[in-house]
């Protein structure tokens, strides 16, 4: 249900994004800007994946960075073992994220509300410490990859511009797939669960399996972002799984606008740009970032993307947030 205004906003943002490699040539610092924009898009994919379950499904996963780590480590470990072939690395990253999301989801989704938040957080911290303990793969310090994933006969990712456009294509793919998903029958079930899960069961939906499927889809999407992240920096470290990273992804979603799919892309860009600007002026940049976020949450309840409409959407009277 994109309004025209929103569609124009999304299209122009994506076009502008696609022009970054060209624009950067005039601004200077080309390599930096291309890498920075690529990083924004990778976090945007992670934020979109979280929005699928947080914004649409009402599942407040506070451990989504775990899947960034799973995707990144799948690429990193295979690379360290001498398997640089992307046709192996990426499917393994997807499969590993799916399996781990299924396991974490199956247990976490038996709980609700604050307990769900705590359990997802606990699982991601477990994976974080697992990463720290993997001394063979860099342990606490992380490890460097020899090179980016190789796709012989398909594409050479070693160039930053090529990699930029591959990530852009995957981001657009994630947005299109997400848009179809949330408006499909499956998406209606997920949104129904957010709105009133008891009622969903009463009208005959076995809600658990739908929520679990959504959790796995979201985990896989985030795992892909993790595989891309490992490729961007050719570096893998446990810090990608730290709970503060999960918090950042959640801030991106909330800042951009929960349940809007494209909002989290703006949120990712907004947060990373702010971080970049503020941290170049002062090392206490978080002290400035904090109040900005508070103001955003107070005055733009539907996030950055909500501002584009100008008016706040119709909201049912007396409807409070749902966890």
């Amino acid at each position: 249900m994109l309004t025209n205004r929103r569609f124009v906003a999304v299209a122009s943002f994506l076009v502008l994004l696609a022009l970054v490699p060209l624009l950067a040539r005039f601004v200077g610092g080309e390599a930096f800007w291309i890498k920075f924009a690529t990083r924004v898009m990778i976090y945007a994919i992670a934020a979109v994946s979280l929005d699928l379950i947080l914004g649409f499904g009402g599942m407040v996963s506070f451990g989504h960075a775990a899947f960034l780590g799973v995707g990144a480590y799948a690429v990193g470990i295979l690379s360290a073992e001498g398997i640089a072939n992307g046709f192996v690395q990426w499917p393994v990253a997807i499969l590993a994220s799916a399996l781990i999301a299924a396991a974490i989801g199956a247990i976490s989704l038996m709980t609700r509300g604050v307990y769900f938040i705590m359990i997802t957080l606990a699982f991601s911290q477990m994976l974080y410490f697992l990463g720290v303990s993997l001394t063979a793969y860099g342990g606490d310090d992380g490890m460097r990859l020899a090179n980016r994933s190789r796709f012989p006969g398909l594409i050479d990712l070693s160039g930053d511009v090529t990699f930029f456009y591959v990530v852009l294509a995957i981001l657009i793919g994630a947005l299109v797939a997400g848009h179809r998903l949330v408006n499909s029958r499956f998406g209606m079930v997920i949104q129904g669960c957010r709105s009133n899960e008891r009622r969903m069961r009463a009208i005959g939906f076995p809600t658990f399996r739908y929520k679990l499927a959504a959790f796995v889809i979201s985990g896989v999407m985030c795992g892909i972002a993790g595989a891309l992240l490992a490729n961007l920096t050719a570096f893998v470290s446990p810090s990608e799984m730290h709970w503060t990273r999960s918090g950042e992804i959640m801030v991106m979603v909330i800042m951009g606008g929960m349940g809007s799919l494209f909002g989290p892309v703006l949120g990712a860009a907004g947060l990373l740009v702010l971080e970049e600007i503020l941290s170049s002026h002062t090392q206490h940049w978080q002290a400035i970032l904090g109040p900005i976020l508070v103001l955003l949450v107070l005055f733009a309840k539907r996030g950055l993307f909500g501002l584009i409409d100008g008016k706040s959407a119709e909201k049912p009277a007396g409807l409070t947030g749902h966890g």
């Binding site: 408006n183 499909s184 029958r185 209606m188 079930v189 129904g192 009208i203 005959g204 939906f205 739908y210």
Partner: peptide, 21 residues
């Protein structure tokens, strides 16, 4: 529509727009 959907088979259908169904 959700109540109708509840009684028309499983809902593991991910692509078609349910609001245009």
């Amino acid at each position: 529509a959700l109540a109708v959907q509840a009684h028309s088979g499983h809902s593991f259908r991910f692509w078609r727009d349910a609001r245009a169904d």
